[in-house]
Each structure stands twice: as C-alpha cells, then as structure tokens.
Computed example of a mutant assay.
Amino acid sequence: MSDLTTAYRRLLVAYPARYRRERGDELVGLYLEMAGDRRRPRPADAADLIRGGLRERLRVAGLSGLSDGLPAAGVIALAALGAIAVYYLATVEVQHLWPYSFNAPIGPFRTPAALAYLGCLVAVLAYAAFPGRVARAAGAGAVLLLGALLLVRGAIGMPVVTMPAYLLIPLFALSALALGAPRAPSWPVRLTPLAVTVAAVLVAAAHLPAPLAGESEPVGTIWETSTWGYSFCCSYLSPTTLVLHLTALALLAIGVVVALWDASDGRARGAWTLLLLLTPIALMEAMRLYPVEPFFTVASRLAASNELQVCIVGLLAAAITGVLLPLLSGQAIRLSRRRRVLD
C-alpha cells in the first residue's frame, strides 16, 4: 500500500465506520485517480474528505439539515461579528480606560484586542469583495486572532487585554460560524455583512441614544465606556455586556423570522439556521444566565472565580443549544422516519 493510499485512508476516519466498510475502497480509488503522481493529498482533497465525512455523520444522526441552514447562519454571524467589532473599536479601544485597567496599547488602540477586531472587519470586506478562497482565508484569520486572544486572556492572571473571557468566547463562536457563509453568494447576500457593518459605523459615529437602564434610573449610555472599560466581572449593566445582550436579541429575532419564512414555504432550512444561531446567542447571554439556577450552583461548585463561573455558565448553555438540542432533534427525525417506513 502506497503512502498516498495510506494517507487517504487515514482521512476516511471522518466517515462513519459502516460507510468506510461499504464505500471506503471506492472513495480512496476515486481520489487516487485524481491525485496523479502526487505523494501527499492536496489540502483541498483533505478538506473535501473531512467535510464529506462530517456531512455523512450528520446524515446518520438525522442532522443533515444543519448543512442546509449553515449558509444563512454564517452570513448572519459574520454581520453580527462586524457590528460588534465596530462597537468595540469605536468605544473601549479609543476611549481612556479607567485607571485600574491593565493594557498594552497597539498604535491608536488601547489593547491588542483591536487586532482581532480589525481581522473581523477584514473578513467582512473580503466576503463582500472576494467571496471564496480569499474570504475563507480572511475568516480563518479572524478565528485564529480571536482564538489567540482568548488563549492569552486565559493564560495570564492580570492580562494585557482587560476583556473578560465571557465576552471573547461568543465572538470566537460567531467567527467560527461565519466560516459557513456560502462561497458563491448572490450580490445581496455578499453585501449584507458589509451593509450591517457600515450601519454600525454610522450609528457609532452619531452616538445614537442607547441608555443603560439601572434599577431606578439610567446610568449612562452604551457609548460611555471610559468608566467601565471592558468591565471586570460581573455586571450586566456594563456597556460591553449590554451590547452582546442586544446582539443576541437581534440574532434571535432574525433567526425566528427566517425560520417562519421558510416554514411558510414548507421548508425546514430556516429552523436549522435558528438552531445554529442559538449557540452564539447562549454564549452572549452568559451574564444574564449567570444568576439563574441551576447554572449558578453548578458554576459555583466548579470554579471560585466569578469570571470563570460566567464562562462556565455560557458553555453549559451552549452545550444545551449546540449539543443537546441537535441530538434531540436528530433522534426525533430518526424516529419519525422509522414510523413512516413501518407505516
């Protein structure tokens, strides 16, 4: 067995065992014919095999519809990512931070987090101008920048980036979901994230009234971050936390509209889009879910740090929306199919 054949067979691990037994030889043979004299699989072939394996696993689990809902969810996630990046760049990153904030300025910006936000904006621009490989590379760059920022934030006690991890995790989730945006979109679709991002720029420039509602009276606006900075844990009144809450509500509303629109035409694609959006929504609402039982008790037993507790709550909520709900949906679909066959 050649090294190339062995390499392709290793990539087949992405497929279910039964599929490998029944069609593994046929699939490897097909790729060997296309490979010619190469000694290693092309990155594109490896990615194609992995994607095919994941789709097959989803189909077996009754979740093949997720691939139908992913393109719309990816576009919506990219638009939200661009808007949030604009907000953080226009407020915390250019305003004077409160004196107890530790940071390492990068050019005109207050923290290295600005590099990740700029990467998100590059991804938005690339998707509008060069959808396909260029846009996918720019999107992957945004994922890597946000992932690196999250690792640095978690590895250092008093970080150079004064941004709580529970604000970074949902941004990372949005950037990962944005990679699912279609490769060859129509002009309205490819311009949607850019239009939302430009709208966010205009809103930020105008500082449209958006008060922070306290228990009895307003305590400022979402544009006044010089006192709060990124905020240390844990207040849902901080501007940066409220913006994620408002974004989560907007994503939920858009997801519901898309689901109802497709349902009116007898399609389930919109419901899958909504299901995919629920994971970043849950992560963005971690602060609101933090005091809710049983989240609070579980997080308190697992960690002593308030910030880490909020992160745990967000991840628990994401596990429910991103793992438990899809599994239950898949089981329901599989049972429905079996009943149809029996009938």
Rank of each mutant, 00 (worst) to 15 (best):
Q309Y: 05
A47K: 10
A210K: 02
L151E: 12
G157I: 11
S175T: 06
L54V: 15
Y236L: 07
L118F: 14
A90Y: 01
L276N: 10
A47Y: 03
L144F: 13
S101H: 13
V28P: 14
L11R: 12
L251F: 04
P188R: 04
I254W: 03
D343N: 07
S305H: 11
F172K: 06
G154S: 10
Y290R: 11
L49M: 14
V219W: 06
L70Q: 06
T6F: 01
P193G: 00
P170F: 03
G220V: 01
G314N: 09
V161R: 04
A35R: 05
Y31P: 08
R18F: 03
R21T: 12
V243Y: 07
V124P: 12
V313I: 04
G52Q: 07
A282P: 09
G29K: 08
P326E: 00
R340V: 09
G119F: 00
T221R: 03
A173E: 02
A181K: 06
A85I: 05
Y15A: 06
T5G: 13
E26N: 07
Y100C: 03
G147F: 00
T5W: 02
A178E: 04
A248L: 02
A206W: 10
S235C: 03
M34H: 14
L302Q: 09
L145E: 03
A80H: 08
M284V: 07
V257R: 11
P105L: 10
T5A: 15
D343L: 06
G266S: 02
S216E: 08
W98M: 06
V160N: 13
L249V: 09
A176R: 11
L115S: 14
L179W: 05
A129V: 15
W272M: 08
Y87D: 06
A205L: 14
D25R: 15
L4T: 02
P112T: 14
L283C: 09
L167F: 13
L118W: 14
V219Q: 11
G314M: 04
G330E: 03
I254Q: 02
W187V: 10
L32E: 15
L167I: 07
R153T: 13
R338Q: 11
G322F: 00
S238T: 12
P239D: 01
A253D: 05
I50G: 05
G314T: 08
R20W: 02
S216I: 05
Y19W: 15
V313S: 06
G132T: 03
A263D: 00
V124S: 09
F232P: 03
L97I: 02
V258M: 05
R339K: 08
V257I: 13
A213E: 11
I222K: 07
A319Y: 03
V94R: 15
S264G: 05
R40I: 00
V75M: 10
T197S: 01
A14C: 01
L251Y: 03
I76G: 05
E22P: 10
F232N: 07
T279W: 00
T297H: 07
P326G: 01
S264E: 08
N103G: 06
